[in-house]
């Protein structure tokens, strides 16, 4: 398929995924803060950290601005200069879709266009102020609708594979960053403390799980009283959970394999091995070892490895230019 189109497919789904993650994270955090006491530092700052916007936000609004929950929410929802705000992500998702309307088809285009138009509407601004929870919920719901329409109306061929690849790589990164932002909760000795022994912190764990849509699946999966190690294990390693890092990377590998199998010229296998390499420690190290050696370090390694993979996808598929032998 045309490289430019493949790139739009990839980014369309990365932006959709980002918008959904930001919406879920904001919605969960708001409700969580309503009945749990946490330090002012811990209220909104982790959200800026997860989105990688901590320093830009501080430089725009000042060093203590992260204490202002309304400002943080506004920044992550509406700010056009923030590359990961919901409004920016939906704008670029739609713009990518607009450039490949012939590929996404009418039904999928209309669902994406509808989310964008909904965000432009002044009534939506009013909803944001009158029913914040409903607002974030609507963003999540409509992105889910787009995914459903995509899955059920598009040909499951190369454009679809690039969309899924983009979505899965983005999702793996989001889960990893969500966990990383709370890594201090999972430090050394505290790992095997069960929820029952630390009721005050249980709410925080649950909020983390909810922000990854993991609360119910985790409850069904975990045996006995959940420990912190269980939560980390679930989000990192549980292959049956669709947002776990390992699940996302394994599926991304499959889609990469499908993309390659369609192409006559088999190029290098760098990307596939790159993906395998970055998840290897997560796959084989026992969770206790990961926690002992330091969760933050492990996740940092993974996140920077993932960035390299993303660049690799770009240079291999999207920006090949004119090959030398034909120039």
């Amino acid at each position: 398929m045309i490289s430019r189109v493949a790139e739009s497919c990839f980014w369309l789904h990365r932006y959709l995924e980002r918008a959904e993650c930001v919406a879920r994270m904001l919605g969960v955090n708001r409700l969580f803060l309503l009945d749990v006491t946490v330090t002012p530092e811990d209220r909104w700052l982790p959200l800026l950290t997860v989105s990688g916007e901590q320093s830009r936000f501080a430089s725009l609004f000042g060093d203590s601005a992260h204490l202002d929950g309304e400002l943080v929410q506004d920044y992550l929802t509406w700010n056009c200069d923030n590359p990961v705000s919901i409004a920016t992500c939906i704008h670029w998702a739609r713009e990518n879709a607009r450039q490949i309307r012939e590929v996404v088809g009418l039904e999928m285009w209309e669902t994406i266009n509808a989310v964008w138009q909904w965000l432009q509407n002044t009534r939506t601004r009013k909803l944001y102020y009158s029913d914040r929870d409903g607002f974030f919920r609507h963003v999540r719901d409509t992105v889910s609708t787009v995914h459903g329409v995509c899955h059920d109306t598009l040909l499951h061929d190369e454009p679809f594979d690039f969309m899924r690849l983009g979505m899965l790589l983005e999702r793996a990164g989001q889960t990893a960053r969500a966990l990383d932002a709370r890594h201090h909760m999972f430090g050394g000795d505290a790992a095997d403390i069960s929820a029952a022994d630390a009721p005050a912190e249980t709410a925080q764990w649950m909020a983390l799980l909810r922000s990854c849509s993991a609360q119910d699946p985790f409850a069904r999966w975990v045996r006995g009283a959940p420990t912190r190690a269980d939560i980390v294990k679930f989000l990192l390693k549980e292959e049956s959970f669709p947002r776990s890092v390992l699940h996302c990377i394994d599926r991304a590998s499959n889609f990469l394999g499908r993309i390659r199998s369609r192409q006559k010229s088999h190029k290098g296998t760098e990307l596939t091995t790159g993906l395998a390499r970055i998840v290897e420690p997560l796959r084989y190290k026992p969770i206790t070892t990961i926690l002992e050696e330091g969760l933050h370090d492990e996740l940092t390694r993974f996140i920077s490895g993932l960035a390299e993979v993303n660049e690799g996808v770009g240079s291999e598929f999207f920006g090949p230019g004119v090959p030398e032998e034909l120039a």
Partner: peptide, 15 residues
């Protein structure tokens, strides 16, 4: 792009 009096499109699998 044009090459050898033919037109090619850049695809994910090459020209």
């Amino acid at each position: 792009f044009a090459h050898d009096d033919k037109i090619y499109v850049k695809t994910t699998a090459g020209p």
